[in-house]
Amino acid sequence: MLDHTTALLAATMAAGTPLVYAALGELITEKSGVVNLGVEGMMLVGAIAAFATVASGNSLLAGVIAGGLAGMLLALVFAVLTLTLMANQYATGLALSIFGIGLSAFVGKAWLGMTVTGFQKVSIPLLSSIPVLGGALFQQDMMVYGSIALFALISLVLYKTKTGLLLRAVGESPDSAHAIGYPVVRIRYLATLAGGALCGVGGAYLSIVYTPMWVENMVAGRGWIALALTVFATWRPARILLGAYLFGGMTSLQFHAQGLGIAISPYLLSMLPYLATIVVLVVISRNPQTIRLHAPASLGKPFRPN
């Protein structure tokens, strides 16, 4: 039973990691006042770019970078349409997701059925020998550790540096930021690109570490769950981490259910993360005050200087 618990916890961390990357990425974008509903598409494009890179004989690190760049490239399309051409952010984000699903499936046909070897697990000395938790938390691959480092970095930058203050100012009140002389559109461009890159990295984790193979549409709604996570987290990084592992736990439960002696149809267990997303959305959204208090005030609203 304890072995199962350790295995389940370890799987939870791994399953939550792509969500951590993608949701933190979307958080950066949304903090600047931009909603990009294209997370699913950016993750898929990141996943296939990373997989193709690694399967062609390049290093895993090159794969992660390729995934990030691919996500960023898609985010650039979104940014040009919404920030320069003033297109509706919601519609453009949807288009980005639809396009990303199509593009990744098209490119991915050549890579179907192949596998790659993902990152090795790295044990942290001493900590990894803690009973139950050690094996779960401190015997992970570098990208899991990387996601936690990224969380720490983003929390620090957002709340303790001038850059973070600027980003939040642009999201709260672009007019004031513009009036003081800050380049609102440029900052939003950067935040959107950074968000896209992280979504791409989240996708890369799925295809070259978590699975590790390319399957059409393999992100399977995690992009939308990441979007829901930013709402669930009321735009706070620590809660994103918590939420991501909560969903990671539900995803891995279906694979460990048998070992834990749970006899429910795997189809019904597969619904869990999506059901849970609806439940948390309802719980968080039912109090409009909470949302209004924490959401960036200009979220989704276009800004045009002069």
Partner: peptide
């Protein structure tokens, strides 16, 4: 690959949003 259909669908919407 017939996934090219999805690619064109996405492109069409992008171009519409752009020309809009």
């Amino acid at each position: 690959p017939n996934a090219i259909t999805g690619l064109f669908q996405g492109l069409l919407l992008f171009f519409l949003l752009g020309t809009d």
